[in-house]
Computed example of a mutant assay.
Amino acid sequence: MPKPDPRVLLRTAGNYLKEHPEEIVRALRGMLGLRVGVPMDALRYLVRELIPNNKKAPKDVVIEAAPPGVRIGATVDAMGTPVRASLVVHVEELLVAVSEVRIGLRIEGLTLNVLGDSSSPLAGLLKSGALDLSKPGNLVAFMPKRPAVLVDAKDDRVTLDLLKLPRFAENPKIKRTLSVLTPVVGVRAIRTKDDHLDVHLKADLSGVPQAIAAARGTV
């Protein structure tokens, strides 16, 4: 996966703020309410930068706010079948701790439209309507090679644990950051509003001593 140049990211962010000075005011208001707002434009930019340029990568990715969720559309290669996928993702569970970063997602409005005249078995199933797309979690649960990050999938829900990814779980910087932040700061909710992805935080000052001890490396 390509890694964006931090200098390019900073320059792009600076140019964006010059063109959208209202974002600075919104950010200051958000800080007072323990809310961090990320413009959807920033997510779109990161997706464009991070998606590799190969045949298997998603194409024509669209990301839009569908309050309180996020609508995602993309053209993907599903087992050799070109498909245009669209869905709305809602974050309904979020647990951030040193041992796990668990995210519970609810998926609604999933559509999979076969492109071209593909005659693959999957294309036949999709065109016939034999697959129940209202319960995408059940489809994910039967994947032949389930990714390690996938903890559970049932009906319209999918649960992920980001710390199941080796590059996260084995990263000492991530472990240290979690041990310092999680005693004091938690995430209450993630939802969209006004073309922004808002992360609503919660604070617990009683965890300050533990956070300080973690920062000093004494826990």
Rank of each mutant, 00 (worst) to 15 (best):
M1Y: 08
M1A: 13
D5T: 08
P6M: 10
R7A: 14
L10V: 10
T12H: 12
Y16H: 14
L17I: 10
L17T: 05
E22N: 13
E22K: 15
R26E: 09
M31S: 12
L34G: 04
R35P: 01
V38L: 14
N53E: 15
K55N: 11
K56N: 13
P58Q: 07
K59S: 13
I63Q: 03
A66L: 11
G69N: 01
A74W: 00
A78R: 10
A78C: 11
T81E: 00
A85S: 13
A85D: 01
V89D: 02
E93G: 13
V98S: 14
G104V: 03
S120V: 00
S120K: 03
P121Y: 04
L122K: 04
L125D: 03
L126G: 00
S128A: 15
N138I: 09
L139D: 04
R146G: 07
L150N: 06
D152K: 15
A153V: 05
A153G: 09
L162Y: 07
R167K: 12
R167F: 10
F168N: 12
A169M: 10
E170A: 11
P172E: 02
S179D: 12
T182E: 02
V187W: 03
I190D: 00
K193Y: 05
V199D: 01
G207V: 01
V208Q: 11
P209R: 10
Q210C: 04
A211R: 01
A215K: 05
G217P: 03
V219K: 08
V219P: 01
